[in-house]
């Protein structure tokens, strides 16, 4: 167990910069999830932490020790790969024991650790099998086991669930979380799936184009997204983002779609300042002055998602409990609380 500190991590491949200075502090035993769209640099950040890539600038510290110049094997970490990377010609036991054998650990100790981890993961009966004789979920467990037997200071997960089917993914997600809590090992988990991120992380790092857009707890990010990117990325269906301008005095916003809405507290700036007003689909209330032309109704059983457009052509999504309300093609809606107000130019929360 240890802390992980990344400071000023930059990475360029030739002329393209993929990481623009990332700072991150992970406390002992904490699980932090890096989430972002593909190409945002999240995997590169993980690989730099693992030592598989060298940063262009910045330092990586594990447990206070600067490990930036060290080889992956000397960093006391374990990495779970997306495609598991189990050696196909070795049995499950050998796969899990390989790293320990190289470290010249006594045979008895290796056997004890592997058997312990296998029991913990419920793969003890599979120890003599080859990876190709295992199902996806079992391979995933073996990959976890290979990480656990090392008893590392830091677990790194590189989208380990994305090769599993939906049902297994949910199951393994819970299992990883339980295991991580039980072992108390500091962990860094990379995923592009926001649900995975929300459920797994003590804290999330939402990455956008090589920058950390926001680092906070899942609920904090959900309740107070730092910018329009985070607002649109976290939450499903995604938050409605509507163009608006600041009214005189800053106490209200005038929507491009028509109508004016009061703000919870005045925002600074001259009248006419361009804003983006965000509201989550579940917070839109039915009945009001905004006419939404409904285009698609998705009944999900306990709730219904309505997709439509506002006057002016902006897209709008509404989530209502129960079946879809009767409508004649146009549904009046209103935006009340909680509203998220962003600056239209910078995208930052106001």
């Amino acid at each position: 167990m240890a802390t992980l500190t990344l400071s000023g991590i930059r990475k360029s491949f030739g002329a393209t910069t993929v990481l623009h200075g990332i700072d991150l502090d992970i406390a002992e035993g904490e699980m932090v999830v890096i989430v972002g769209a593909s190409g945002c640099g999240k995997s590169t950040l993980l690989r730099i932490t693992a030592g598989l890539e060298t940063p262009t600038a910045g330092t990586v510290r594990i447990g206070g020790r600067d490990v930036t110049p060290l080889e992956p094997a000397d960093r006391d970490i374990a990495l779970v790969f997306q495609n598991y990377a189990l050696y196909p010609h070795m049995t499950v036991f050998d796969n899990m024991a390989y790293g320990l054998k190289i470290r010249r650990m006594p045979r008895e100790e290796i056997r004890r650790r592997v058997e312990e981890a296998a029991t913990l993961l419920g793969i003890a009966p599979l120890l003599h099998r080859r990876p190709r004789e295992l199902s996806g979920g079992q391979r995933q467990r073996v990959a976890m086991g290979r990480a656990i037997v090392r008893e590392p200071k830091l677990f790194l997960f590189d989208e380990p669930l994305s090769n599993l089917d939906a049902k297994l993914r949910v199951q393994m997600r819970a299992e990883i979380r339980r295991l991580q809590r039980r072992l108390g090992v500091t962990s860094l988990f990379v995923t592009h799936d926001q649900v995975e991120a929300m459920t797994l992380g003590d804290r999330l790092v939402v990455m956008n184009q090589g920058r950390a857009a926001q680092v906070a707890t899942p609920m904090e990010i959900f309740a107070n997204p730092a910018d329009t990117y985070v607002a649109g990325f976290i939450g499903s269906p995604t938050m409605n983002l509507l163009r608006a301008t600041l009214a005189e005095g800053g106490g209200a916003a005038t929507l491009a779609a028509g109508g004016s809405i009061p703000l919870d507290r005045p925002r600074p700036g001259p009248a006419g300042r361009a804003l983006v007003v965000g509201i989550r689909p579940e917070h839109v209330t039915l009945g009001g002055s905004l006419p939404m032309a409904v285009e698609l109704v998705e009944p999900l059983g306990s709730e219904t998602v309505l997709h439509g457009t506002l006057p002016g052509g902006e897209a709008m999504t509404v989530r209502v409990q129960g079946p879809a309300p009767a409508h004649g093609g146009t549904l009046p809606v209103s935006l009340v609380e909680p509203l998220h107000i962003f600056d239209a130019e910078t995208g930052r929360r106001l």
Binding site: A50, G51, L52, P72, A73, A85, Y87, Y98, G99, I102
Partner: peptide
């Protein structure tokens, strides 16, 4: 796959070891 090379790096296997074992 590159992942085997990377897994071996993390396992601490040097180039000759990786050649021989994998």
């Amino acid at each position: 796959p590159d992942e085997y090379v990377e897994a071996a790096k993390i396992d601490g296997a040097g180039p000759l070891r990786f050649f021989w074992d994998v």
